[in-house]
Design a protein around this nucleic acid. Structure first.
Length: 744
DNA sequence: TTTGACGACATTTTT
DNA sequence: TGTCGTCAAA
């Protein structure tokens, strides 16, 4: 016992209270940086170390895999070993685990396939086609958003059908019904159904429910503010057993309302779980006082909140920098110069993060960083398993693993091209529907009846190969099998050909990704466990060992912290997002503000905010952007505002509104550049020269280094590009800006 | 029937 | 930037 107390010694009074109140349920309202994860891990540690429960009697639920992994490793560290049997994971992965055991209860087989949004859209498209629903006005996305919303609110197709009041369009209801039937027919489950199926098992089968209720003595939930109604209902079922749940959350950090999360859920906690124990963690251990002050000041503009007063014993810290730029290129240059300064102070790149509202805004930065050779990583963003080539590869593995995986077969049946077009596919799926057989079997059926043709021979070949792979599955090492499948199917050849023909970098990336994909199989025992894993994990598991600058959206930065944070794109319309305000009005704006709050509170030491006057989407006209209203909501005394034509300390947001757009329409890009260069001392001279030099530096015969292709020699220079002979990858045309000269 | 080329188009956030 | 739909050619 002494040892336990010693380990709890680092906690403050409020944290200690939250850890030790194990007899009853409680809600912990934890401000940003107040040691939320620490409380959760310590509570689990405390329960286990005091022998209040065994590991398999604890259920810890998170929203992201990242959070789950973090929890797993932190608790593991406390015991110096990983805990066997402990239930820790995302809502979705835990539901999947339960559902795998009892799939037949809801009409699925236990090898059901978990599908993603892309598959969902394809399904809905198919349904619209069969039902002859016009998709030009109401597209599949429109229908899917309804289906998602229903599922977030735990409304099954039956619930909708039984509604007395006809709230929804006929087609929405019709598609929802057919969609659900299709999922069962195809033995598929979307993300929403992982939760809903579990709920219906709990509701319909008391024995199964009792089993889990008895098992989970303690339930812990992270990021409770992100919970939607269905998830809450799910928790409630499990809670009714031992009635002990501890939820940690921060109403000011609720940023997932578009996924069904509602702040009101956290506000209802007391009623839902029969408790009035609310513990507030208000001491911040992360940020400087100035940063904290800015964040608090900003979030105080929101009305719908519990209200907390964050305080800190930390340093006062530097002022928050606010910088205006003409265009994204200059923003990127400015940031890279600031980072150069940080590097001179020996600051690790891992401690630097650039956060943005929109994932696509990494582009200008990436270009800049590639140009001057600063290493960076993109967290989240383009998720690895969602790339086209990876999904194709996965589809090949899926169909080999499970012959009745129709969606997988549909994806690759004509990739690479085998002379099977839409019409043939339609014929096959008709057979599959009429005879109630899988698409794979339907294809064989079709082959028997169809006339001989080139397409038929190829498809026959594919079918027999799939059969062969399927047989090999149990005897062959899954990595070798995967390599065999991708080679044998001609898919690798297709990607290689594209690569040679177009000489472009993207296709090399594809090949690279495929190798990486095969490599990632090593961590799994067999194909099945790998496929299960990737259907639930869409994150890039980037190794954070390398020293790199972190680029990510604010959403994916939640739960992380960095010494130095750059926040880009603080422009009206971008942040707060125009769309968000248009769709949800005040609610939307408040959520955007919470997002800004999350962004600022990621920083430990410094924050630098920037905005760009010219429209970010460079193809668009010369639209003019105003700085974000959030900048005006920060306390002036804590800001250091840098020169900008448009924004200065005196002008208020209202004044900025009055600037006439035409004033800026007539300025040429070159002039803009000049003005900003003169006005904005932030840009070092060498910064501009760098670009200039980079394109003029090269000579034929130079040794160069390319990020992907490695070492090579320049054969010929043509304008902005060069023909480069690479040591390992042959001759390619490469933009000069993507290569660096090598000096031996 | 399938394929490739071409232009139009839209671009929030994610388990 | 990259995906989608349309159209003409094979």
């Amino acid at each position: 016992m002494i040892n336990i107390e010693k380990n709890l010694g680092f906690l403050n009074n409020q944290q200690l209270l939250a850890v030790k109140k194990t007899k009853q349920s409680c809600l912990v309202l934890a401000g940003a940086g107040s040691g939320k994860t620490r409380v959760l891990t310590m509570r689990i540690y405390y329960i286990l170390a005091s022998k209040l429960a065994l590991p398999n009697q604890i259920l810890s639920v998170t929203f992201t895999n990242k959070a789950a992994n973090e929890m797993r490793s932190r608790v593991g560290d406390m015991f110096n070993r990983s805990l066997e049997g402990w239930w820790v994971g995302t809502f979705h992965s835990i539901c999947a685990k339960i559902l795998r055991s009892y799939a037949q209860e809801v009409g699925l087989k236990n090898d059901f396939v978990i599908i993603d949004k892309e598959d969902q859209i394809k399904l809905i498209k198919n349904i619209c086609e069969i039902e002859k629903i016009n998709t030009s006005e109401k597209n599949p996305n429109y229908f899917l958003s309804f289906i998602d919303r229903f599922k977030n609110e735990s409304l099954t197709a039956n619930d909708i059908n039984n509604m007395k009041e006809k709230k929804y369009e006929k087609n929405v209801i019709k598609i929802y019904n057919i969609y659900e039937k299709e999922l069962l027919r195809l033995n598929c489950c979307d993300f929403g159904n992982l939760i809903l199926h579990c709920i219906s098992i709990f509701r319909n089968n008391k024995n199964i429910l009792k089993r889990y209720q008895n098992q989970f003595k303690y339930i812990l939930v992270d990021e409770y503010q992100d919970i939607n109604f269905a998830q809450q209902k799910w928790l409630k079922y499990l809670y009714e057993g031992h009635k002990n749940i501890c939820c940690v959350g921060d109403d000011d950090q609720s940023i997932y309302s578009w996924r069904g999360a509602e702040v009101k859920n956290i506000l209802n906690f007391e009623k839902f779980f029969y408790t009035n124990t609310i513990i507030r963690l208000e001491q911040n251990y992360r940020s400087t006082k100035k940063i904290l002050n800015c964040a608090s000041h900003l979030i105080s503009h929101n009305k719908g909140r519990y209200g907390k007063k964050l305080w800190s014993e930390g340093n006062i810290g530097d002022k928050i920098e606010v910088k205006g730029h003409w265009e994204t290129k200059e923003e990127a240059q400015s940031i890279s110069s600031q980072i150069e300064l940080l590097i001179k102070d020996n600051i690790s790149l891992n401690e630097i993060a650039i956060l943005m509202r929109i994932a696509a805004h990494t582009r200008a930065l990436e270009e800049r960083f590639l140009n001057i050779g600063l290493p960076y990583r993109i967290v989240g963003g383009l998720r690895f398993y969602e790339r086209k080539e990876i999904k194709d590869a996965i589809a090949y593995l899926r169909i080999s693993n499970n012959l009745s995986d129709d969606l997988a077969l549909a994806r690759i049946i004509n990739v690479p091209r085998r002379g099977i077009g839409q019409i043939t596919i339609k014929k096959i799926s008709l057979i599959s529907r009429e005879k109630q057989i899988s698409m794979f079997d339907a294809t064989r059926e079709y082959l028997r009846s169809a006339k001989n043709s080139k397409g038929k021979i190829e498809i026959n070949d594919l079918i027999s190969k799939i059969l062969k792979w399927n047989k090999l599955k149990d005897d062959m090492n899954h990595i070798e099998l995967s390599e065999l499948i991708l080679e044998d199917s001609g898919y690798m050849k297709l990607v290689r050909n594209e690569n040679n023909q177009q000489n472009n970098i993207n296709n090399f990336d594809k090949l690279d990704n495929l190798y990486e994909f095969i490599n990632s199989l090593k961590e799994f025992q067999n194909l099945g466990s790998f496929l299960e894993h990737i259907s639930l994990v869409s994150e890039n598991e980037n190794s954070s060992k390398d020293n790199k600058i972190n680029l990510m959206t604010i959403h994916s930065a939640k739960g992380l912290e960095f010494d130095h944070v750059f926040l880009i794109g603080w422009e009206e319309g971008v942040f707060p997002s125009k769309r968000s305000i248009e769709e949800r009005g005040k609610e939307g704006l408040e959520e955007e503000r919470r997002l800004a709050y999350v962004a600022i509170t990621r920083a430990r030491k410094t924050v630098s905010i920037s905005f760009v006057n010219q429209n970010r989407y460079s193809y668009a006209s010369h639209d003019f952007n105003r700085p974000s209203r959030f900048i005006n909501e920060l306390p002036k005394e804590d800001l250091e505002i840098f020169n900008s034509e448009v924004y200065n300390q005196e002008s208020s947001f209202e004044e900025l509104n009055q600037i006439e757009e035409q004033d800026f329409d007539n300025i040429t890009p070159g002039k803009k550049r000049l003005i900003s260069y003169n006005n904005n001392k932030v840009f070092d001279e060498w910064d501009f020269n760098q670009d200039f030099e980079n394109t003029n530096l090269f000579n034929e015969g130079d040794k160069v280094l390319h990020k992907k292709f490695g070492n090579g020699n320049i054969l010929k220079i043509e304008g902005e590009t060069a023909q480069v002979q690479f040591d390992k990858f042959g001759t390619k045309m490469i933009f000069l800006r993507y290569i660096n000269k090598k000096f031996d």
